[in-house]
Design a protein around this nucleic acid. Structure first.
Lengths: 242, 242
DNA sequence: CATGTCTATTTATATGATTAAAATGAATTG
DNA sequence: CAATTCATTTTAATCATATAAATAGACATG
C-alpha cells in the first residue's frame, strides 16, 4: 500500500473510493481544474496509486452529483457550476470547506428566508402530534442550552429541522442539510450564537404559533428570526471590511 | 450481446451503465425492493447480462444520489426516502414517471410558492441587463405563443427559469428542474395551459415589477400566479374525486 | 469543397483473482 | 448464565489485464 492511498483512507472516506471522491470533490470546487484539463482516468489512477476501478467509481459518483462529465475519446471534464447539485450534502460541504465565504453565507440565508417561514406556516396547518412533539423537544433543548445544560448550536439546528420535517412536504424536508450548514457556518462567522435570549424568545414565538395552528403568525415569527440573522451577518461583514 | 443488454441500451442511457442506472432508479422509486432485499452485485450483473463493472458503477451513481447504500457482508440496500436527493433531476424524473400523482404536484407547487416570489423579489433588486433581457425574451415568447407562433409550455418555462437565474443566487437557480417539471406536470394534469390570457397578464405584471426594480410588487405578482395554479390543481383534483 | 475513411486516444465493458470488512454463530471463559 | 473471544462465511472493495466502442482529427478522395 503506497503513501498516496494512505492519504485517501485518512480522509472522510471509509475506503479508497470514498477517499478519492472526497479528494477530487474538494479539488474541483476549489477550481483546481479551471485552467488545466481534468486528467484521464489512467493518469488519475497512477497519480493516486489506486486501480482504475476505484478511479472510475469515484468519477461516476462525481458525475452523478453533476460535477463531472465523461465521454470516450474526449475525456473527463468539469461541468459548469450551474450543473452542480448544490443541495447534495457532499457538494455543499466541499464548497464550504474550500474557503470561508460571507457571500455564500448570505446566499444560504436568502434561501432560508424563502423556505423556513413557508415551512413553519405549513407546519402550523398540518403538523401531527409527533411533529409538534419534535418541535417542542427542540425548543426545550434551546431553553436547556440557555442554562448551560445543552449545546446551543445543535439545539438550534434540531428546532429548525423539526419544523422542516413537520411541514409534511418532503421537498421542504430536503433542506435540512442547507439549514444545518447555514447555522453551523453562521456560528463560525459571527463566533457566537446569534442573538441569545432575544433569539430564544423569537423561537418560542414560532413554536407557539405552530402549536396554535396559526400559519400567518408562524410565518411572520420565522421571518423575524431569519431577518435577525441577516442583520447580524450584514453588520459583521461591514466590520470585516472596515 | 444478450437481449437484456439491448433493453438497457434502448432506455435513456447512452450506454449500458446509464441504461442500468435508469432501470434500477425507476425500480427503486416504484418500491420494487420494498419487501424483497436488493440483489447482490453478482445477481444484478447476471440478471441484466452485464459485467460487474457496469453494475458497480450504476450502483455507485445511485449511492451518490442517496437511493442506495452498500457495505461488505450486509450487501446493498435501498435508503429511506428521506435520504433521496429529490432535487436531483434524475430522481425527480423517476418519481414522476413512476405514476402520476396530484399529491406530488401539489407539493411541487407548495415549494414553488415559497421559492419563486422570493426569486422574483431578488431579481427586482439585483438583476443585471442580461438577466432582464432573458426575462423579457421569455415573456415575448409567451406573447408569441398566444398568437400561435410559439410553444406555450416552453415559453412559460423559459420565463420562470429566467427569473430564477436573474435572482443572482445559485441556490435559487438550482430549482430550474423542479419548476420545469412542475410546469410540465401541471399541463399533463390539467391538460391545458393554466389560465391563458389572464395568466399572460399576470406574467406581464411580474416582468414589469422586476424591470421597475420593485421587489414587493414582483413578490406579490408571482405569488398571484402560483396561487392561481394551486387553485386550478385543487378544483381539478376535486373533479377527479367526484 | 464536401465527404468519406482511417487512425489514435480515451472511456466503456468484461473477466478473474485477491483482499478487506462485517455479521453470524460457535466456542470459550469468568 | 452472561459475556467475550474467535473462526467462519458472505459480501463488497480492490486490483490487474484484456477487449470493445466511440469519436475527434488527420488524411484521402470524389
Amino acid at each position: 500500500m503506497s503513501s498516496e492511498t494512505d492519504d485517501l483512507r485518512g480522509g472522510l472516506g471509509r475506503n479508497l473510493t470514498y477517499g478519492l471522491l472526497e479528494h477530487l470533490g474538494r479539488q474541483i470546487v476549489t477550481g483546481a481544474f479551471a485552467e488545466t484539463p481534468f486528467p484521464t482516468e489512467a493518469d488519475l489512477s497512477e497519480e493516486h496509486g489506486v486501480s482504475r476501478s476505484v478511479t472510475r467509481e469515484a468519477v461516476k459518483m462525481l458525475t452523478a452529483k453533476g460535477l463531472l462529465t465523461a465521454r470516450p475519446r474526449q475525456g473527463t471534464s468539469v461541468q459548469p457550476v450551474a450543473n452542480w447539485n448544490l443541495f447534495d450534502a457532499d457538494v455543499l460541504r466541499w464548497l464550504l470547506e474550500r474557503k470561508f465565504s460571507p457571500e455564500l453565507l448570505r446566499q444560504f440565508n436568502e434561501l432560508r428566508a424563502a423556505i423556513e417561514p413557508a415551512a413553519a406556516a405549513l407546519a402550523a396547518q398540518t403538523a401531527d402530534a409527533r411533529g409538534l412533539a419534535l418541535i417542542e423537544a427542540g425548543f426545550a433543548r434551546m431553553v436547556a442550552a440557555e442554562a448551560g445544560d445543552d449545546d446551543g448550536l445543535n439545539a438550534d439546528i434540531a428546532f429548525h429541522l423539526a419544523i422542516l420535517r413537520a411541514s409534511g412536504n418532503p421537498f421542504f424536508a430536503q433542506f435540512r442539510d442547507v439549514v444545518a450548514t447555514a447555522l453551523r457556518t453562521s456560528i463560525r462567522f459571527t463566533n457566537r450564537i446569534v442573538g441569545r435570549t432575544a433569539d430564544l424568545a423569537a423561537h418560542g414565538a414560532v413554536k407557539d404559533a405552530i402549536c396554535a395552528g396559526d400559519p400567518a403568525r408562524a410565518h411572520a415569527a420565522m421571518t423575524a428570526i431569519i431577518g435577525d440573522v441577516m442583520t447580524v451577518i450584514a453588520t459583521e461583514q461591514a466590520h470585516h471590511h472596515a
